[in-house]
Lab assay of single mutants.
Amino acid sequence: SQQIATAKDKYEWLVSRIVKNHNENWLSVSRKMQASPEYQDYVYLEGTQKAKKLFLQHIHRLK
Rank of each mutant, 00 (worst) to 15 (best):
H58C: 05
E38K: 04
R31I: 05
L54S: 04
K52M: 06
R61A: 09
A35R: 11
K10C: 05
K20D: 09
A51L: 01
K50H: 11
E12F: 05
R31C: 07
Q34M: 11
L14I: 00
Q2R: 08
E46A: 11
K8D: 03
Y42V: 01
V29M: 08
A51S: 01
I4C: 05
H58I: 09
A51Q: 00
S30V: 12
E38I: 14
L45T: 04
Q34K: 10
S1K: 12
H60A: 15
A7K: 03
E38C: 07
D9G: 12
D9I: 13
Y42F: 12
F55E: 01
S1R: 08
Q40K: 13
K50Q: 12
Y39S: 03
S1N: 13
K53N: 11
W13R: 15
A51H: 00
G47P: 05
N25D: 14
I18G: 01
F55S: 00
I59P: 02
T6W: 07
A5L: 10
V15Q: 03
F55N: 02
Q40V: 09
W26F: 09
T48Q: 12
I4K: 10
V19K: 04
E46Q: 12
F55Q: 01
I18P: 01
Q49K: 14
F55G: 03
Y11E: 00
N25A: 08
R61Y: 07
P37S: 10
R61G: 07
Q49Y: 08
G47Y: 02
L56R: 07
Y11I: 00
Q3Y: 11
N23F: 07
K63A: 05
P37L: 06
A35F: 10
L56M: 10
L56H: 04
S28L: 07
G47H: 10
S28M: 09
K50V: 03
A5F: 05
S1E: 05
S28G: 06
E12H: 04
L14F: 09
V15D: 00
N21L: 05
A7N: 00
V29Q: 01
K52G: 02
S16N: 10
A35N: 15
L62T: 03
H22E: 13
A51E: 00
K63V: 05
Q3V: 10
F55T: 02
W13K: 15
L56E: 14
Q2M: 13
E12V: 12
Y42E: 00
Q2G: 09
M33A: 00
S36K: 12
L56I: 14
R61P: 02
Q57F: 02
L54M: 05
L14C: 00
R31N: 10
M33K: 02
A51T: 01
K32G: 02
